[in-house]
Design a protein around this nucleic acid. Structure first.
Lengths: 194, 194
DNA sequence: CATTTCTCTTGATCCATATCAACTGCATTT
DNA sequence: AAATGCAGTTGATATGGATCAAGAGAAATG
């Protein structure tokens, strides 16, 4: 379990964590298992966890005034998931996070996270790289939403996150891309035809 | 000039930078003046600067295959602007950044930035808070693009960044929101009518 | 200060995607 | 294995915003 996290940190920091440093990381995280459809976060509650996905798949979504779900993010193996805004500000979240498949997570809390960042330089570095990657990906997704047609969005998803297409049902993918399931189905047909 | 940056850092970190620490910050930044329409970054070149806007207004935009500009970000007083992806990776940028008004900037380079983060804890903290705010704002903008109508987008801009509306011409605001200038004009009329 | 060039507005038309609706088959529950 | 429900497909229709076009101000330029 923890070994997966260790390898992940080594990989993104392009380094090897010393044993004595990894002890701190191990202490800061605990294992959490979710069955399909169980929640890690309910909207209107304060987000307690930052979670690393060891196995499984989750989604983060909000519900609009008309009761429709909008998927903001997915997470699968080796991804992180949390509502940072809620976690850091200790304010109620607009999001739900639930398991799309049975999942094993390593979770930590805000307090432990803050301590950990002082104890482990590797972890701090990783957090920083994560932020950067996240911010670059977010910028691209903003532009995708503005400039791309439905078909281009689907192709972009295929190129950027092919794992998602295997892993999540089409209606969720549609929601993530901001399309209706009907349009998604038609676009998919188009794309696969070539 | 530098005092503006100092006050800014004090404000976002909710602290006061010690003089001996601010010396490092001062050394890392130099003044750069841009007349309206001058560029801080040209697409297909590596981004050299991370810039703090002391006075003025700038925009960051890409040009699509059909030659249309898409504004990705604005920056005015007390904002930062750069292409982080290009700066950090030292890879060619997809963006242009130019001055919409005559502007005074404090700029630093990747090397100086990395050194500075080791020298000044205040600066590191600030960078971290900046990242977080950025990532939260980006998430909201993604959702705005997916879920909001043209009118809602305009209202959201009014609420989130009223300064922009005073400062930038409508065709640029339209591009930023992913609307045509025509739609922007009609929506604005609607909104002001009430 | 005259001229050229943008920016913004308004109207007419078009198109990509949403919406509504019906049907199929797969999966989950009983 | 029957019953229920959900995911996906396909077709018909509706619509929000894009595109095309023309004109009026405002601002930059010589």
């Amino acid at each position: 379990m923890y070994d997966k996290l260790r390898k992940y940190i080594d990989r993104v920091t392009s380094a090897v964590i010393p044993d004595e440093e990894f002890v701190f990381i191990e202490k800061a995280f605990e294992v959490k298992r979710l069955r399909k459809r169980q929640f890690l976060l309910h909207q209107d509650t304060v987000c307690r966890y930052m979670a690393f996905v060891v196995t499984g798949a989750l989604r983060q979504y909000s519900i609009d005034d008309d009761g429709f779900e909008h998927i903001a993010n997915f997470a699968i193996e080796d991804w992180w998931i949390s509502d940072r805004s809620s976690l850091i500000g200790q304010t109620p979240s607009r999001y739900n996070i639930d398991a799309v498949e049975d999942s094993e997570l390593l979770v930590t809390t805000l307090d432990k996270l803050n301590i950990l960042k002082e104890q482990s330089l590797s972890f701090l570095k990783m957090a920083h790289i994560l932020d950067q990657n996240h911010s670059i990906a977010a910028q691209k997704r903003i532009e995708a939403g503005i400039t791309m047609t439905a078909e281009e969005k689907y192709r972009y998803l295929m190129a950027a996150n092919p794992e998602f297409i295997q892993r999540f049902p089409q209606n969720m993918l549609a929601s993530y891309l901001g399309l209706t399931p009907e349009t998604m189905s038609r676009v998919r047909k188009q794309v696969l035809a070539r």
